[in-house]
Amino acid sequence: MDKSKKILIVSFAPVILTIIFILYAVAPAVGNYSAANNDYMEEKTAYIDTQNQLNTLKENKSLAIELANLREKLADFDTQIPENDDLAILLVDLQKFAKNNDVKVLSLDADPESPMEIIDPKVQKLKEKKKNKILAKEKENTEPVQLYQIPLKLVLLGHYKNILNYINTLELYGRKITLDGILVTKYKTNKNSSEPALEVTINCTVYKLERMDMDALLTKNEDKSK
């Protein structure tokens, strides 16, 4: 072989080795770097997004303020309308009031509880009853609470003034009692007193509020919409 050719071949050996080095070492290394850089940038973008979302959530104080206002407005709500019927406690209190007002509780009948529709009184004033019915039907499954009414029939015996005071005590009582009607069933005259004793039946209603399982409600609604 010619010497020049030998020299050329020997001289091109480093070139070939360099090419091999580029192909098998440099290019993959650069590729790896590029991939790692992409991964890093993607992760960084996702991190910034999450950070922003977190900051937005932390800065959203309006909901907390609204809740605080609502809590203030509804401070005595759970006493007025408890989650259980608590009729035993009510009976004890009614007896206590009767004793304080010199009235005798002759009987107390409680009818079975029944669900009650929750309606905004302002909306009803606008006489959009038809629309309300549709809305109520739609709302039916999404209301987070269910209101129940428990009708009571309370029979009292006492003088008119005492019964009036008793009714006043009921109105001031912590638990919400709505009076629907008063029936005077008997007038009992007494020789010792100028005023007759009255046997009065008071038709009234107490309420209870049950919390619904929100997750179950949402699932139910989703199923319905499907």
Partner: peptide, 11 residues
């Protein structure tokens, strides 16, 4: 809470 407020108003 809003529903409770509605109930309170209604009653």
């Amino acid at each position: 809470m809003e529903t409770k407020l509605l109930v309170k108003k209604q009653l």
